[in-house]
Write a protein that binds this DNA or RNA. Structure first.
Length: 564
RNA sequence: GAGCCGGUAGCUCAGUCGGUAGAGCACGGGACUUUUAAUCUCGUGGCCGUGGGUUCGAGUCCCACCCGGCUCACCA
């Protein structure tokens, strides 16, 4: 059991400020533990906001544990009993789903055919998503809770105060809805549809409702308990808070009104609404709201292709109550902020440091990254590196050159990295090209070094954004002659010729031909061979890229010109 | 109509307890380099939206206003 440290209540970081409120609430209730909740709508497949909400809640939860020493649970609650309102665009078997509109998601066949129901399918995806990041949570299915009777007492209570609950909601509704509203949505005994109908009678003594099918006129008496009824959205939220004693739940700004009304209903029931936290929504590059239908903004898949999850957590940590723009350009900064914070965490575990939350107070036992992500991106773009392993090699050479020249610019970070992993990097560096494919497994984020992962991500960035922008220009007559000259010279070189030898060769050839300025010769190499305006020191590039590969580039360039 | 957030360097933003204004990028100079890029280093650049108030002192606290944006207003 963790020891309590009440002095942490005053830590100036939002998770602790939140946790202190939860601690007060739990102390007042006399409970020995705290219940944190995050909810998921029926349409909602997991997305980048899901990650944010669970991560942020987890941080508050951890802060709570540090302050109080008390245990806590995080309930991931799926609203899988909600009626399907419309057929989603991104699923197969849409025609089949049409026939089940209005029924609870857990009473609809899985359009993917892999689970017992559509609801079960979505639940599985949600859990798989959360598991990917190693979140500590307890999954809850609304359907299970209703059917198992866990909500029965609360439902009967809501039936008793039916009119008071209505009184909370009615003022917020338009005239026509006002006439039909009930916090109870009975499941139609014949069609299975979640009904939105007015109650003709409430019978608290028997725990039932009397209502009429608007189409057939048939009258039904339905128990509110046992999964025969579910609660309407805002009442549902309140019911859950009341029945389970939820202590903390955060939600987006779009739910401010719902939080207020659900809180009122919760009080009507006799409960105390949880400590709440409203976070801002994300905007796209133009400051527009991110919506899945518009397809703007950044998906979590995209983020995780270009950067590690720790950087996304870093982004989510900062200023949750500000509308932040979420698009590609924020990624490198998030990564570098994280890397810097990671080093700070290593030096001193301060709970004001975002990395403290991301790693639960203790930096992982690995060397971090010797270079900023921005630098890796520059490097990969300048050198046109399309392979993570080559980037590692390139960087290894870079470090060695650094050491050899005795440069003072080796930062503390680089030095640490060298101590920890120089041998490993050395092993990578001397590996012959043909073994590259079987070299180091870089693709598994959980196993690989942070730096290896960053190399992988940098290359992905290069492939997607830099590489497509390349424009290989055709060589001039003069350049063509020089390139042919270079081609022959390279063929004559041993395969393991070093960077200096190649660089000297390049100068010789450049001088041998009538370039007005040597700079033009190198410019030709970048523009014709690499398709870029500028590039790396070319001798080093050839040594890394391989002489056969470079020969291929030249041949391709000459052929391109011939066919034009 | 109700509510929320923002306005600080050319751009994106940080700014802790009220105490001489900060970073990255961009731009300029230098170092290193047998070209360039990278890297390192130095530097240019700000009426902190406007007006008032509190204070010895305000980017920071209070009030009002202007501008920009978002959310909710007969779904969940």
């Amino acid at each position: 059991m963790m020891t309590a440290d009440p002095t942490l209540r005053t830590v100036k970081a939002w998770p602790f400020e939140e946790a202190a409120k939860v601690a007060d609430r739990v102390a007042a209730s006399g409970k020995g533990e705290a219940l944190f909740q995050t909810g998921y709508g029926p349409s909602g497949l997991p997305h980048i906001g899901t990650f944010g909400e669970v991560a942020r809640t987890t941080w508050v939860r951890r802060a709570f544990g540090r302050i109080t020493g008390l245990p806590s649970r995080l309930l991931a609650f799926s609203d899988d009993m909600d009626g399907l309102r419309k057929v989603p665009d991104n699923v197969p078997n849409k025609a089949m789903l049409e026939g089940f509109l209005g029924r609870p998601l857990t009473a609809i066949p899985d359009p993917f055919g892999t689970h017992d129901s559509f609801g079960a399918h979505n639940n599985a995806r949600l859990r798989a998503f959360l598991d990917t990041f190693g979140f500590d949570y307890e999954f809850a299915s609304s359907t299970d809770y209703y059917r198992s009777g866990r909500f029965d007492a609360a439902l009967r209570r809501m039936l008793e105060v039916h009119e008071q609950v209505r009184a909370v909601i009615l003022p917020t509704l338009g005239p026509e809805r006002r006439a039909t509203y009930s916090p109870f949505l009975p499941i139609h005994p014949r069609t299975g549809v979640v009904m939105q109908v007015p109650m003709e009678e409430t019978r608290p003594d028997s725990g039932t409702l009397v209502w009429r099918d608007p189409e057939t006129g048939e009258r039904f008496e339905t128990p509110v308990t046992g999964g025969h009824c579910k609660a309407q959205w805002k009442a549902d939220w309140a019911l859950r808070w009341y029945a389970l004693g939820v202590d903390y739940e955060m939600s987006g700004k779009d739910l401010i009104d719902s939080v207020r009304l659900s809180g009122q209903i919760c009080r009507v029931l006799g409960g105390q609404p949880p400590v709440g936290f409203t976070y801002e929504l994300f905007l796209d590059e133009q400051g527009q709201k991110i919506s899945k239908s518009k397809g703007n903004g950044l998906t979590i898949e995209e983020w995780l292709r270009y950067a590690p999850p720790e950087s996304l957590a870093q982004f989510m940590y900062g200023a949750p109550q500000r509308a932040k723009r979420l698009f590609f350009d924020v990624i490198p900064r998030a990564v570098d902020d994280y890397l810097a914070n990671l080093e700070k965490l290593r030096a001193a575990p301060e709970p004001t440091n975002p990395a403290w939350y991301i790693h639960d107070g203790e930096a992982p036992d690995e060397p971090g990254s010797p270079a900023s992500f921005s630098m890796l991106l520059n490097l990969v773009s300048a050198a046109g590196i399309d392979d993570p392993l080559k980037l590692l090699q390139y960087f290894g050479n870079y470090i060695k050159r650094d050491l050899a020249t005795g440069s003072e610019r080796s930062s503390e970070r680089v030095r640490k990295f060298q101590e920890w992993s120089l041998n490993r990097l050395e092993a990578i560096t001397i590996k012959p090209n043909r073994d590259l494919d079987t070299g180091i497994e870089i693709a598994r984020p959980d196993k690989a070094l942070m730096f290896e992962r960053l190399c992988k991500h940098a290359v992905a960035y290069y492939s997607d954004f830099v590489e497509p922008q390349k424009r290989h220009r055709a060589p001039t007559v003069l350049e063509r002659a020089a390139l042919e000259d270079l081609l022959h010279a390279l063929r004559a070189l041993p395969a393991d010729a070093d960077a200096e030898t190649i660089q000297t060769l390049l100068y010789d050839i450049g001088k041998r031909h009538a370039f007005p300025n040597l700079r033009d010769w190198f410019g030709c190499l970048y523009q014709v061979l690499l398709g870029q305006q500028e590039g790396p020191r070319f001798g080093g590039f050839v040594a890394l890229y391989g002489i056969p590969g470079t020969i291929g580039l030249i041949e391709a360039a000459l052929a391109r010109e011939a066919s034009a």
